[in-house]
Design a protein around this nucleic acid. Structure first.
Lengths: 160, 160
DNA sequence: GCGAACGTTCAGAAATTTCTGAAGACTGGA
DNA sequence: TCCAGTCTTCAGAAATTTCTGAACGTTCGC
């Protein structure tokens, strides 16, 4: 709908929001660059130019969002450089991985449940454990439902 | 099951895990103190003693976890101090509030969808929007399901 | 092998966050 | 009104995180 300036601004705006949501600054900016790029893939050098930061920063940012499962390396014939692009199922992947953080919390809560005699504190810890256990148990079905829904939408679009 | 030392250790362990999950240090320690306490309520002074930190730090930590919806102020007859305790539905509340962060992200994504001509970037942004919109739409039903489940469990326990 | 193009690592600089302690504000009792 | 107890605020100190730039690998073409 608009020009390059608006695109950049929207990208930076999204990056800022992600930082507000707890993401690291450079990782968020790099992610936004991937989201908003019409190229098939970006290299570390592309990112450094686009974001105006050092190669070192880019290296760290890429490492982070690769390990979050949001981008992946792809091999481009005839290019020696490392190309990256967003993964197809980036968001459902991210959602699932975030639950491993919940797993860690749950382990710590479990330890608390064991360490505390029955009483108010014990009950509170059990409540916390029960809720997050429930969340974990429901997550896969949620993702599955989303994917089914999306598949249906796609079918619907292709025969209009 | 054990003594005061184990309880403290389990509390500090949980606090550390929460920090790893992105929570602020002092807020996490205060929250753990509430979780692991058998008292009906804690005052700012109690917390400062328990955690061994300044009144200023405690003030900030309490403000934070109140605003997260995890603890609430209660009025204790005959005491001039401010008493706090964990809220009954702390975890479902937290889960729901976290989604207002998602709301912010969605707004930024929406802006991106508008700012970008159709093409790969546009498609990517639409994908992202669709997933998080789906998550938001499913959250209330998820919480409701949990509460129904818990209510059933409680009924089961009371007539054994 | 050699050299050039890229990427990574890491020590230190810069920026940011977090904590403290002192000063101040509020509350209820005398 | 004054006072004592309690909590909040805020400037600056301390700790932590983040970024840079230079040195070091790696890889590929020649």
């Amino acid at each position: 709908m608009t020009g390059e300036t608006e695109r950049r601004e929207a990208a930076e705006q999204l990056a800022l929001t992600l930082v507000g949501a707890g993401m690291q600054r450079m990782g968020a900016r790099a992610l936004a660059a991937f989201l908003f790029s019409d190229k098939d893939s970006l290299t570390a050098g592309d990112l450094a130019d686009e974001l105006g930061v050092s190669a070192g920063s880019v290296s760290g940012a890429i490492k982070m969002i690769v390990q979050m499962g949001l981008i992946e390396r792809i091999y481009v014939a005839g290019s020696r450089r490392e190309h990256f692009r967003m993964r197809d199922n980036a968001w459902t992947t991210l959602y699932s991985r975030q639950h491993s953080v919940v797993d860690d919390v749950l382990s710590a809560v479990e330890r608390g449940v064991d360490a505390v005699e029955s009483g108010p504190a014990h009950d509170r810890l059990v409540d916390m454990r029960d809720f997050y256990t429930f969340l974990l148990s429901e997550a896969p079905a949620l993702v599955e439902r989303f994917e089914r829904l999306r598949a249906e939408q796609r079918r619907g679009e292709s025969r209009p």
